[in-house]
């Protein structure tokens, strides 16, 4: 059990925010005048209900420890990859490659993480899996759109499995003066990523005007990014006491998470738009698919992981090479 006073406060805080959000949406639905406003608020209510579930599951996993948390992220990777490949047209020649990708490569990658074999964890997918995928597809003998198909499967692995796994990998970092407290860093990271999403959504809905990339995602506005970004940086910095960072470092780290999260959402929107869909799937009521909630995390996790590892690791720098 990873229980200490700071984590307890953090969990209480999240639950309090959810209680307020649930009450607020409930009140606003009653007062909504137009049908459009009502529909938006109903969706917000559905999202909030789903948030309760997500918070309960994630908190339970964190409290149960590193293994459970890693397995939870492994499951999320599996589900996200499933949504990704479903939207990606593959051919019958990829069938056995996909079997390997889902049932061998993904579990093995998470196994290396659990096992603490950092070297293998960082190269297994970008080296071995990326060489294996085209080999297996070539052996199946179908040359149509070969490079395209291979690239899509590799990219699915990179985003859904490799990137996502860098969030639970925060648990295995050996951070100066922070031994045994990594669960709080992961909790903080996930809270910041998701709060950033939520606040950008709220700011965008309430005062969003100037679209950043109308062809990619009409919902992303400068007002949403700046308003949501600044409020998230304040929250992230205010929560510095659960992290190994000083307040300013926490603010910088949060700003980085906001930026990477925003760009990740943008990239994943471009893929959805190209495929002509609005959501990645239907696994989470009100939100869409698992990937709709993980898109920001995918892009933020590896960067946060490596910066933390580089600057805050307890080992002397030279030994890392």
């Amino acid at each position: 059990m990873n229980f200490d006073r700071e984590l307890t406060w953090l969990i209480f805080g999240v639950v309090a925010v959810l209680v307020v959000a649930s009450l607020l949406t409930h009140l606003m639905i009653k007062r909504a005048r137009t049908d459009g406003a009502k529909a938006t608020l109903e969706n917000v209510a559905a999202r909030t209900r789903a948030w309760w579930w997500m918070v309960v599951i994630f908190t339970a996993a964190i409290l149960l420890g590193k293994t459970t948390t890693t397995l939870l992220f492994g499951l999320l990777s599996f589900m996200a990859l499933r949504e990704f490949i479903t939207l990606t047209p593959t051919r019958p020649g990829d069938h056995r490659t996909l079997f390997w990708v889902f049932f061998v490569i993904t579990p093995l990658h998470y196994w290396y993480l659990l096992d603490g074999w950092y070297g293998m964890f960082s190269i297994f997918i970008p080296v071995y899996a990326f060489l294996f995928v085209p080999i297996r597809s070539a052996l199946a003998g179908d040359c149509d759109h070969f490079l395209e198909r291979t690239a899509k499967i590799q990219w699915g692995l990179l985003i859904c499995v490799y990137s996502v796994s860098h969030a639970p990998a925060l648990l295995s970092l050996d951070i100066k003066n922070y031994a045994g407290e990594n669960a709080k860093l992961l909790f903080w990271f996930v809270v910041v990523v998701e709060i950033s999403d939520v606040l950008q959504y709220v700011w965008g809905k309430t005062c969003g005007k100037r679209k950043i990339a109308p062809t990619v995602s009409p919902n992303k506005t400068w007002e949403g990014l700046i308003g949501g970004g600044f409020s998230t940086v304040i929250i992230g910095a205010a929560l510095y006491w659960v992290t190994p960072f000083y307040p300013l470092q926490a603010a910088g780290m949060t700003a980085l998470i906001v930026m990477m999260g925003f760009l990740g959402g943008l990239v994943m929107s471009a893929i959805k738009r190209d495929r002509g869909v609005k959501d990645w799937g239907h696994a989470i009521a009100g939100h869409g698919g698992v990937m709709d909630r993980l898109d920001s995390l995918c892009f933020a996790a590896p960067v946060v992981f490596h910066i933390t590892r580089y600057y805050f690791d307890s080992q002397p720098l030279l030994q890392k090479f």
Binding site: R82, L98, F99
Partner: peptide, 18 residues
């Protein structure tokens, strides 16, 4: 939709798509 990608004709092992 997609069931032929999950378990195509002639395959025994499934790919877990949606």
């Amino acid at each position: 939709e997609n069931l032929n990608r999950i378990l195509p004709k002639g395959e025994i092992l499934p790919a877990p798509l949606l």
